[in-house]
């Protein structure tokens, strides 16, 4: 199966929940509305022809430029993409699914953007989502155990956000 047929198949099933796609990119990707990502993933895994049984990776990419002049030239609104790379062990094909989230929920700084967890679809998503939460500050609703995983539990901030500032000190240890 190719990217085109994935898209058509998904659009057939989920209709306008599939909000976009880019099939010409190096890695063709499909964009899904945040609230339906769990169902889409469930379908992707369980459908016999798709059978994406292996979740490779979950990544969050923060699109934000602090400098307003440069931001104007960037050509996009500040947002966070959560990227799901998945592949199929049996069918040996792969797919990239994206979810576009606001940088902060309801535009309030400090309120983490929310997306449903896929940890019930793939168990490995558990740790990946924890890592994304830890480093990029995305809240996965319904996650069984959403805690920081790489940083200490009392760490402040989300290091992989573009506006992250390294704290000056942490428990008496100089940061910068």
């Amino acid at each position: 199966m190719t990217g085109t047929s994935f898209v058509s198949r998904l659009q057939q099933k989920f209709g306008d929940q599939i909000t976009g796609s880019n099939l010409e990119a190096v890695d063709p990707w499909i964009e899904v509305a945040p609230e339906s990502i769990a169902e889409v993933c469930q379908f992707l895994r369980d459908d016999e022809e798709l059978a994406f049984d292996l979740l490779n990776c979950i990544t969050a990419v923060d699109y934000f430029i602090a400098d307003p002049k440069k931001a104007a030239k960037a050509g996009w609104e500040p947002h966070i993409d959560v990227v799901y790379h998945m592949s199929s062990v049996s069918k040996k094909h792969s797919l990239v699914v994206k979810v576009r989230l606001p940088r902060w929920k309801d535009g309030v700084e400090g309120q983490l953007p929310e997306v449903p967890t896929v940890s019930q679809v793939w168990r490995t998503a558990d740790w990946h989502e924890r890592e994304v939460f830890d480093l990029s500050g995305v809240c996965f609703t319904g996650h069984p155990d959403l805690r920081r995983i790489l940083c200490p539990e009392d760490w402040v901030g989300y290091p992989l956000r573009k506006d992250y500032e390294m704290p000056l000190e942490y428990h008496g240890i100089r940061g910068r």
Partner: peptide, 22 residues
């Protein structure tokens, strides 16, 4: 401009790198 994701078979399993460029 664009993004690429590639996995290789490293000794301990599939090592994937994801690169987003502006």
């Amino acid at each position: 401009k664009g993004e690429a994701y590639l996995e290789t078979e490293a000794p301990r399993g599939q090592m994937g790198f994801y690169l987003v460029s502006d």
